[in-house]
Simulated assay, not measured.
Amino acid sequence: MRRLLLTSSFSATAGKLPAFLEGSPKNHTVAFIPTASLPQRSDSYVQEARQAFTDMGCRIDNLEVSTADPETIRQSLQEDDLIYLSGGNTFFLLQELRRSGAADLIRQQVDQGKPYIGESAGAVVTGPDIGFLDAMDPRSAAPDLDSTAGLALVDFRLLPHLDSEPFTEVTRKILNRYGDDRPMVAIDNTQAVAVCGQCLTIL
């Protein structure tokens, strides 16, 4: 059964993790993937997420898929208890997940029931397609990306940061343009979407 916790801001919603896991995350090892943040000017949200996991007693296994060798990626994704993907540029993240082979490994692990935690870009990439987010994230960050098809771990498109600064205007623009095309779930920075098998709950 697939188990995913999708957020706009992990540090703001970390308190929802124990309920999602149905137990304390203490002593869980996190395959911590900050790749999406590389094209960004600031990675403060990555540091905040790392601190939130640490405060809950988790052990961080940093996994930068854009530079890690295939064996390191395989070992981390297979052996760590949780998989976390940070926010940042969704197109760059998808490009590097495919190029490194991490995309297929993540799908395998999630299909086997390993919990996946995605923040912003890390949440969007789980959907069937990420093309709708080009008003928020510049595609130019991923010049080698030849398709916007996502990981298809969920059957809906996740729109993060709804009505949350500095994304208030652009999230409404995206929702107005694409909201009726396919299933879309929009959440603000205080909300999270929990997916357990075929069940979806907004926390």
Rank of each mutant, 00 (worst) to 15 (best):
D146M: 11
T201H: 14
L94A: 05
Y84F: 15
G101R: 05
P138T: 10
H161N: 11
M56Q: 06
R107Y: 12
A103Y: 08
D181H: 12
T67G: 09
V46H: 02
A152K: 13
R41E: 15
T35F: 03
T35Y: 09
V195R: 00
T35C: 10
L82I: 03
G88V: 01
V30A: 07
D104A: 15
F92K: 02
A12F: 09
A19V: 10
A142N: 00
R139A: 10
T67H: 11
S44E: 15
S76L: 01
R41S: 15
P128N: 05
A68G: 09
Y45W: 15
E165Q: 09
Q51V: 05
D180I: 10
G122F: 00
S44M: 15
A192P: 03
T35H: 03
M1T: 14
K16G: 06
L97H: 01
R41Y: 14
D134E: 15
S42K: 12
L38M: 14
L85K: 02
P160N: 10
K173I: 13
T90S: 04
A192M: 07
D144P: 01
E165I: 08
R107K: 15
A149Q: 13
A192E: 05
L93E: 03
A14C: 06
D129I: 08
A68V: 07
G101I: 06
L162D: 06
R157F: 10
A31G: 09
P143G: 06
V46I: 13
N89A: 01
A19Y: 08
I83M: 02
R177S: 14
A12K: 11
I106K: 06
R41K: 15
R59E: 13
S37I: 08
A186P: 01
P183M: 10
R50D: 02
T126D: 04
R59T: 14
N89P: 02
T7N: 06
S76D: 00
A121K: 00
S9H: 11
V193K: 02
A135R: 11
V125Q: 01
L145E: 03
H28V: 03
Q78N: 08
N189Q: 13
